[in-house]
Design a protein around this nucleic acid. Structure first.
Lengths: 221, 221
DNA sequence: TGGAATAAAATTGGATCCAATATCCATTAT
DNA sequence: ATAATGGATATTGGATCCAATTTTATTCCA
């Protein structure tokens, strides 16, 4: 019998660690768009060779967080209005689908756990912490759907969206409150057994978020 | 001015080449599920070192075609009924969305090109060739949607689905004909300007394919 | 003979070294 | 003065070598 039920203690490799660190940095906005991330620099900073750095950059390329060009290097792509539009459009399809699949499996304990995440989210200081809890909420909710592939796709979308979310960390604290309130409302509806109402609320939640992001990013067509 | 409008002559790297070869092999069913793909073996076969092989396997892991375990190796995951169900469910959302977005940009030339692909598909000998043309059709159609992110997600789904499609290469030649006919019908509807009809036909096409695959894979619940 | 302990082989992950290519800068020609 | 050309420098991709770990084979003891 092993300690953690997860049994993932074996998995961590330096390449994965480097990828996690770089991912956090990119999402925190540490690298300017179109600025090359030099393997040697990262390697020295982290005290490893360039090999795991290369693997990490390959991983991040697969996640869409960097673009690599042969013999030139890896860079963080510019944010694109079109991409964020797409992200929210696809989220608008995937998330209701996942919620619907998850609802039959939601236990009172799961609800309690989700409420805790929302509570912690309320007291979040900065956008980075809030975005993390936001991600946690979605993961905890949709993991109950038993749709691992779709969840994986969605998580990639949420990660990409993070870059855009973090851009508006200076303003719109009321947006966070409103978002938390919507999460709570969705939980209420689930608890009441109103599955369709919850799905509808989720759709509106996503649509509202998209509009809000468009507005604060200045592009409201 | 450069020769090819593509300007991608610079891109190919040995890791990418290795990944392409391995991807083709996996989709062709050359590796049994849960059988380890040894880096050294591939490296010797292709006359390269293990480094590009490792990168290729990492890439394929990101595509969901292999699973890697630290110090153990990479293996092709078993086919899962749940996964194929999910693939078709998500396709059922993404493809109509992409088609709707593509329709306004479809020119008569694009239609002609698509018809050519369908024609070639009709004369396809084996399932591998047909699957390739099927992929080509989807790409040519959806690339007009100007939704690169969604197309990327969809292409990954189609690649995963390939493994399941190839399983039924021995039977159901009438399935291929029927599928080609449906493609043609979708093109007809687009040409007639009946966008909604085309989208509806596409939905039915996907749904029908899913049912057919379920049936031939023996799991029709 | 069977099973646990242990040693040997195989395999992957990472570090270092070399090759291929891009970028930058100086020189030169117009 | 400026643009083109050639070479020095920087940087990435790949090969070889070493370390960490797993897997297989062997030995020893009941």
């Amino acid at each position: 019998m092993d300690l953690a039920g997860d049994s993932k203690l074996v998995r961590s490799t330096t390449a994965i660690d480097v990828a996690r660190i770089l991912r956090a940095r990119i999402l925190a906005g540490n690298y300017a768009a179109d600025e090359f991330i030099r393997q040697e620099v990262i390697a020295k900073e982290l005290g490893v060779s360039r090999i795991p750095v290369r693997e990490a950059l390959a991983q991040l390329e697969a996640e869409g967080l960097v673009i690599r060009q042969k013999y030139r290097g890896a860079l963080v792509p510019k944010l694109s209005i079109g991409e964020i539009e797409e992200i929210y459009e696809v989220r608008g399809m995937l998330e209701p689908y996942l919620l619907e699949a998850a609802i039959p499996n939601i236990t009172p304990e799961a609800i309690a756990k989700l409420r805790q995440v929302v509570e912690r989210s309320r007291t979040a200081r900065d956008m980075t912490e809030w975005a993390g809890l936001n991600m946690e909420f979605h993961q905890a909710l949709y993991s109950l759907a038993n749709k691992p592939l779709s969840v994986q796709v969605l998580e990639n979308l949420l990660t990409r969206a993070d870059r855009y979310l973090k851009m508006q960390r200076f303003l719109s604290s009321e947006t966070q409150e409103e978002s938390d309130a919507e999460h709570q409302r969705i939980l209420d509806l689930i608890e009441e057994g109103d599955a369709q109402g919850a799905v509808k609320a989720l759709r509106e939640h996503i649509s509202w978020n998209a509009q809000d992001l468009r507005r604060t990013l200045g592009l409201d067509t």
